[in-house]
Simulated assay, not measured.
Amino acid sequence: MKALLVAVNAKYIHTSLSVRTLKAYANSDNVEMAEYTINERVEDILRSIFLKKADVVLFSCYIWNVEVCLDVADMLKKVSPETKIIFGGPEVSFDDTEYMQKYDFIDAIMRGEGESTFKEWLEIGEMADGITYRENGEIIRNKDRELIHDITSIPFPYDG
């Protein structure tokens, strides 16, 4: 399974710590990342993501990019219905059920700190703690994941 971590930054000079940290923590050859900006055309972002042929696309959502993420994810699900779409980040973590009810193209939401949740999700899927997902038309909310207490367990995400 190929996973694509997507960041939509506020400016082209920004980089996303979140997708880099998730990728480093997962330590998997099946995880890629892609970064865009809110100033890019939604159609161009969609095309780029679609051409990467990922099985699952994970969007890192913040107040400045959630609308772009929603637009891209909605169109992606229409052109590639088999692609699993997962949202995470502070903008969706605390309103997970509401987002799932409102946007049927979202297959799951990772709540809270994503490092351990993402790594476990790669191994066991929706049964991982910290996941809200759909099953037979129902929204299932797994128990919250415990916070990471030892920050040194998170690898430094920048090469160097």
Rank of each mutant, 00 (worst) to 15 (best):
D107S: 10
V79K: 04
D107F: 11
A34V: 15
F59N: 05
D104H: 13
I131V: 03
E91T: 10
N9Y: 01
D159L: 15
M75Y: 00
M1Y: 10
E40Y: 03
T97L: 15
D29F: 10
D96L: 08
F105I: 00
Y36L: 09
F59H: 06
H149M: 15
E120K: 11
D71W: 14
L17V: 13
G137K: 03
I86D: 07
K78G: 02
L70F: 07
V79M: 07
V79L: 02
H14L: 07
N9V: 01
T152N: 15
T132M: 05
G114S: 04
M127K: 15
L70K: 14
T83M: 10
Y62K: 07
K53H: 12
T37P: 06
T15E: 13
I63C: 08
T83W: 04
V31W: 11
I154S: 08
R20D: 08
G137L: 00
L76R: 05
P81V: 04
S60D: 12
P157C: 06
V92L: 01
A24M: 05
I85F: 05
I49L: 05
Y99R: 06
L17C: 09
G88P: 01
L58E: 06
D44G: 05
S48R: 11
G160S: 12
L70T: 01
I139T: 05
M1R: 12
V72K: 03
I151N: 07
S93H: 09
I139N: 12
K143Y: 01
V72T: 03
D129H: 12
I38V: 15
G130A: 05
L147M: 14
S116P: 09
M110L: 10
I124V: 11
S60W: 11
D74V: 01
D44Y: 00
L147Q: 11
T37G: 10
E98R: 14
S60T: 08
V6W: 02
G114A: 02
I106H: 08
D107Q: 06
I151C: 11
V72P: 02
D144T: 13
A128M: 04
G130E: 04
F87K: 00
K23R: 11
L122Y: 01
P155L: 03
N9L: 01
K23N: 11
E120A: 06
C61Q: 03
K84T: 09
W121F: 15
D55A: 00
N27K: 15
W64N: 07
M100A: 07
T15H: 12
H14W: 07
I151L: 15
K119G: 03
S16D: 10
S80H: 06
P157V: 08
E135P: 00
Y158F: 13
A7R: 02
I131L: 02
V56M: 11
W121T: 04
K119C: 08
S18L: 07
G88L: 05
G89H: 05
I151S: 12
V8A: 01
E146L: 14
I124E: 09
I63V: 13
H149I: 15
T152H: 15
N30G: 00
F94E: 03
R41V: 02
F87H: 11
L58N: 11
S60M: 07
I85V: 12
D55W: 11
D95R: 14
E115F: 03
